[in-house]
């Protein structure tokens, strides 16, 4: 059973032939493929890493831009608010002035109306008084004297009564 013969040499040669064939047929292609795959994976990983870094840089850039834009937008809003406030103040001022003007006009109108009405009233009072007085003293006084009396009366009336007449 344990018998050494030329088979030993034959087996060594057989195995060496197998090594040579396998190396050519299988080992080299497989090892090359494994190397290529590992290179590819390494390359992909490197690329992924560089892409990630690039993406991070872009993100930082975008964040910076966004924050700049925010600042700028705030500036624009502040400016617009200031302009609006100024315009509103100006409008309020103008309106106040207008109201003041209108009030003044109204007062003047009132004053004018009061004077006009006072004059009218005075005329009426004079006419009535005169009519009443004329009936009483028609036979004593002639027209000329009458005119003088009326004017005296009116002047007196102007000075004493109409000065503080309230309408």
């Amino acid at each position: 059973m344990i018998e050494l013969n030329a088979t030993l040499i034959a087996q060594i040669l057989n195995f060496l032939i197998l090594v040579v064939i396998l190396r050519l047929v299988a080992y080299k292609p497989v090892a090359r493929m494994l190397q290529q795959r590992s290179d590819k994976i390494q390359g992909d990983l490197d690329k992924a890493e560089s892409d990630r870094k690039e993406a991070e840089a872009t993100l930082v850039q975008y964040k910076q831009k966004l924050s700049d834009a925010n600042v700028k937008a705030q500036e624009i809003i502040d400016k617009a608010e200031k302009v609006a406030r100024d315009e509103r103040d100006a409008a309020v001022e103008a309106t106040k002035r207008e109201i003041e003007q209108m009030k003044k006009n109204a007062e003047e109108d009132i004053q004018r109306d009061r004077e006009r009405i006072a004059a009218q009233l005075r005329g009426e009072v004079v006419s009535l008084s005169l009519a009443a007085a004329g009936k009483l003293i028609s036979k004593n006084i002639d027209n000329k004297e009458n005119e003088r009396l009326i004017n005296d009366f009116i002047n007196k009336l102007d000075k004493e009564k109409l000065g503080d007449l309230s309408c």
Partner: peptide, 9 residues
């Protein structure tokens, strides 16, 4: 199963 093979290797 032959010693020739194993001893050869």
């Amino acid at each position: 199963n032959d010693l020739n093979t194993t001893l050869g290797l």
